[in-house]
Design a binder for these strands. Structure first.
Length: 289
DNA sequence: CACTTGACCTGTCCGC
DNA sequence: TGCGGACAGGTCAAGT
């Protein structure tokens, strides 16, 4: 699923497409996908106007005029896709074909606005969830209380970054990067890409990483995530943005899913192995233990 | 407390 | 073509 750049891409799309629209109906497949009681949905969601679309870490926040927020985590394969017969979407646009293909077997929640445009929450693997929560309570849910700082905030310095890792000195740098309580929004793609950029082996223990290496990793992580946002995120077969379009960051990836190909920096063949329980890609020349 | 592993699900790909 | 197993961009509850 989506990491920070993909979720941010979806957020920007939805911000353009659904603010001001009024909810009319909602249906969901199971309580796991959307656990709120019917009377709460009726009272706080239906007839509500979308007032804002925000993001924190990998979580999307759709604010409603009722003082409630639709909180969504896409996990591995979730999508939030807006569909309308809209003048902005001509024939041949991905959204035009989605008009005819959605809902499908991966659709978990289907929301219809009063103008009959629709927002689909699709999730092949059913790990994701959507929940209606009072806006003021959102910062108090467990995930939000524990999640670390946003890495792309202008004031987030290399020193702040390094300090977040001190608690996790005895684990690998990759496991710590993936830990959402250390820094928000990093997942498997951008962990591998930023570690390659900073020339750090993913299995290095955190307490062996130097100040200079943390500075490099801080720079690389921000650069790679900003580039990915500019490219609309990374797409595998399940990721699309709010308009149904794929992102192109994978065309720029240096190591992720490039095992057997040459390192763009030194030409050594990239290898793949398991680290922190995840498929991990490195240049064995640039990144050594 | 910190760290690792398994569980949650469906679909796809790869080797026999 | 079928089948088993590994694997997939994430997080949480268990275990040590």
């Amino acid at each position: 699923m989506p990491e920070l750049p993909e979720v941010e891409t979806v957020r920007r799309g939805l911000h353009e497409l659904i603010i001001g629209r009024v909810m009319k109906t909602v249906t969901s497949d199971t309580a796991k996908s959307f656990p709120n009681a019917a009377q709460d949905v009726e009272a706080f969601m239906l007839q509500a106007t979308v007032t804002d679309v925000r993001r924190r870490a990998k979580v999307l926040l759709i604010d409603l005029s009722t003082g409630y927020t639709l909180v969504t985590h896409l996990k591995m394969t979730g999508q939030l896709v807006f569909v309308a017969r809209d003048v902005r979407f001509g024939a041949g646009h991905p959204n035009d074909s989605l008009v005819h293909s959605l809902p499908d077997k991966s659709t978990r929640v289907e929301m219809t606005f009063v103008d009959d445009s629709k927002l689909f929450f699709n999730d092949q693997r059913k790990f994701g969830w959507m929940k209606l929560i009072p806006t003021l309570e959102v910062p108090n849910i467990d995930f939000m209380r524990r999640v670390g700082p946003e890495p792309l905030e202008a004031h987030f310095t290399a020193a702040d970054f390094a300090a977040r890792f001190t608690r996790r000195g005895k684990t690998s740098i990759k496991a710590a990067l993936l830990d959402q309580t250390v820094v928000a929004g990093v997942g498997n793609i951008y962990a591998d890409e930023s570690l390659w950029g900073a020339r750090i082996h993913p299995k290095r223990l955190v307490n062996t990483i130097t100040t200079k290496e943390f500075e490099d990793l801080h720079t690389e992580l921000r650069e790679v995530m900003n580039l990915a946002i500019a490219k609309g995120g990374s797409s595998n077969h399940t990721y699309i943005n709010a308009e149904g379009k794929k992102g192109s960051y994978m065309d720029f990836a240096r190591v992720f899913r490039r095992e057997g190909l040459e390192c763009p920096r030194c030409g050594t063949i990239i290898i793949k192995f398991k680290a922190a329980g995840r498929g991990t890609h490195i240049c064995p020349h640039c990144q050594v233990l």
